[in-house]
Computed example of a mutant assay.
Amino acid sequence: MSARPLPPAPPRRVSTWLLAGAIVALVVASFASLQLQWSAFFSPDALAVTTEFLAGFTPPETSPAFLRKTALAAAETLSMSAIGTLLAVAGGMALAIAGAGRLGKVQRVLARGLLNVLRSIPELVWASLLLVAAGLGPFAGTLALAAHTSGVLGRLFADALENADPHPEATLLTNGAAPAAAFLYATMPQTLPQMLSYTLYRWENNIRAAAVLGVVGAGGLGQMLKFHLSLFQMQNAATVIIAMLLLVALVDAASFALRRALTR
């Protein structure tokens, strides 16, 4: 029995070739305009200065008092990311319901616009703005994480709700169930695993962001790192960097394990 011939390849549209050409032209123009000096970057002088700079980080500071201080800052960073993510889940879910069009077309446009604004402003900019109102410390950093992440999670949650199968909820409504009950028992179970996966992934990102937010005075490991680097205390800064790496690795492993448990 002879094998069936393969179907012909779909024709390439002109728009596809135009888009590919525009991307290639953008990449070429980017390299041409940036004036990257690769030879200077890999020159012997640059390598010697870099080696000398990195040697200043060794050995890391391991005194008990400093390790205790670093552990407290790591706990503060972890708390900022966790509370910021929880606040973002609440805010994002509230906006996602309207953004999915469940409250009307006007509310959908307004909610989507607000979500675009929230996620378009980076965490560092949010922190710089909120530091004026809330003052230095982790409170401003937590609110900055919550504001930006609300925009990200709200968009993802809204898309998940829009893509959910509407038939189970319609069936419950036809049989006399209240709209809220139909939503909670028919639509939410479909989207909940996906929403939890999004939340855990954003929590991983917020750990890194919380460590960076301290650079602008939002507390945690980032504030410690900025302080010691500004005083050229490289060995202390090395300990803080190692704490950052360990914290991110720990949260990544915990988040990966939770996502695997949810998808089984």
Rank of each mutant, 00 (worst) to 15 (best):
L86C: 09
A261M: 15
A29K: 05
P10F: 00
T62F: 11
Y201S: 12
G214D: 04
T51P: 04
L173V: 00
P193Q: 12
A182E: 09
L34T: 11
A96N: 01
T142D: 02
M195T: 02
G141Y: 01
A249P: 01
V152H: 03
A158R: 13
L145V: 00
T58Y: 15
G214S: 03
T174K: 06
R102E: 14
L229W: 03
T58I: 15
H148W: 08
L36E: 10
I97M: 10
T174M: 13
L173H: 00
G104H: 10
L258Y: 07
G176T: 01
L124N: 08
M244A: 13
W126Q: 07
T85D: 02
T171F: 12
A146L: 03
D159Y: 09
H167A: 14
L231V: 06
M244E: 15
L131H: 04
M224C: 08
V212F: 15
L67A: 07
G137E: 02
L245H: 03
G220H: 04
L103C: 06
R259Y: 04
A209Q: 12
T85W: 05
G101R: 15
P59G: 09
S39Q: 13
D159R: 08
Q194S: 09
D165R: 06
L213W: 02
T77M: 11
L115V: 11
A218L: 04
A178G: 10
L200H: 06
L6N: 14
T187A: 07
L229A: 07
P189Q: 08
H228Q: 13
A3Q: 07
G137D: 03
A160P: 11
P193A: 06
M93F: 14
Q194A: 11
A71H: 00
A98M: 07
I23G: 09
P179Y: 03
L114T: 12
A73W: 05
A180N: 09
H148K: 15
P122F: 08
V89Q: 05
A160M: 02
D159Q: 12
G56P: 07
I23P: 03
L124R: 04
M188Y: 05
L26H: 00
V152I: 13
P168A: 01
E123H: 10
V248K: 04
A88W: 05
A3P: 10
Y185M: 10
V212Y: 13
W38Q: 05
I83W: 08
S79V: 13
A249V: 08
S15R: 15
A98W: 06
L231R: 12
V49R: 15
I121K: 00
D45R: 15
K69D: 12
L258H: 02
H167K: 13
M234A: 14
A94I: 13
A40I: 04
R202A: 12
S120I: 05
L115R: 10
A180L: 14
S33T: 02
G222T: 08
A71Q: 02
L6Y: 12
G222N: 05
H228D: 14
L247A: 09
V28W: 13
A243L: 03
M244I: 15
R4W: 05
A111S: 11
M80C: 03
